[in-house]
């Protein structure tokens, strides 16, 4: 990340005392760690001493001053996980990777660290790898987790779990399918619809895996705005007057392809609100 990007982050968060943590958080998000140069720049721009900034950066465990690996594995060592043998799992990881907790493998691939509680004690011992949770981990599963982490094969794992399932939708007006098998998201055909706002019209894509409703747009729409979602075939709007339970914005309604119900998503950018209403096929 360059100087300009960091200056922008500082500008955005303001130069008051409270802004420092937000600034450091954003820099860490961009660079995956806090480089010395960035801290010096923050100190200079905010007019605080480097000692102050360094104090904040070293106080919070969320900040790291050392570069992290491409993948990050955290093993929980909280009380509940500990009594279920988390220490053995930590040792197994250390042995497999050849590093101590808190270190990064020499090839900069994997950072392994321990955390004190992930708040999901009933699932312990827990290991989190790149945001993917592994519950009831045993020392035998360690090799598997490492392989998944290196190869990034979590996404295909999701479909094997019981909760997510695939949905197939069609336009409630013209009845034509909205599925696009040409572009897959999370390993499955995506839902392709039209999104427009202020005269700008482009495609929008949603994964068909229920639970994954991060919408991608052709155009960059500003956050927190209502966009019009419509059918790419007959151009009729999906909005039917229903409201999002999370934010109150209008919902876009599509029909499930087997006519067993409707599927609704929130039209506000940044809202993940969605609803699957099975047994309401009359449209």
């Amino acid at each position: 990340m360059d100087t300009k990007g960091i200056l922008e982050i500082i500008q955005r968060n303001g130069k008051n005392h409270a802004g420092i943590i937000a600034i450091l958080e954003e820099i860490q998000e961009e660079c995956s760690y806090l480089p010395e140069e960035a801290l010096r720049l923050v100190a200079r721009e905010t007019g605080r001493s480097l000692a102050d900034i360094y104090g904040v950066a070293t106080f919070y465990k969320a900040f790291s001053l050392k570069p992290k690996g491409r993948h990050c594995i955290s093993a929980c060592l909280g009380t509940a996980c500990h009594v279920r043998g988390a220490q053995k799992i930590v040792e197994e990881f250390s042995q497999e990777l050849g590093i101590k907790p808190g270190e990064t493998t020499p090839d900069n691939e994997i950072t392994f660290e321990t955390v004190n509680c992930l708040g999901a004690c009933a699932l312990g011992p827990i290991v989190v790898s790149d945001g993917h949770y592994f519950a009831n981990v045993t020392a035998r599963k360690v090799g598997e987790i490492l392989r998944d982490t290196r190869e990034g094969t979590f996404d295909s794992d999701v479909s094997q779990e019981a909760h997510p399932f695939l949905i197939e939708v069609s336009c409630p007006r013209c009845g034509r399918s909205l599925m696009d098998s040409g572009t897959s998201l999370h390993g499955h055909p995506s839902i392709l619809i039209t999104a427009s706002m202020n005269g700008k019209t482009g495609w929008a894509r949603i994964p068909s895996l229920y639970g994954h409703f991060s919408r991608t747009h052709e155009h960059d729409f500003p956050a927190d705005t209502i966009i019009q979602l419509s059918c790419p075939h007959c151009a009729s709007s999906f909005q039917d007057g229903s409201r999002c339970v999370d934010c109150g914005a209008p919902l876009a309604t599509m029909r499930l392809a087997d006519n067993s119900g409707v599927f609704r998503i929130c039209t506000r950018t940044g809202c993940d609100g969605h609803l699957l209403d099975i047994g309401r096929a009359e449209l």
Partner: peptide, 20 residues
């Protein structure tokens, strides 16, 4: 008016010194 040294770390690892 220098701010050359400060607290670093937390808990058991808290120490005083210059950044880096």
């Amino acid at each position: 008016m220098a701010g050359a040294i400060g607290f670093r770390g937390r808990g058991e690892e808290r120490s005083i010194g210059t950044p880096f």
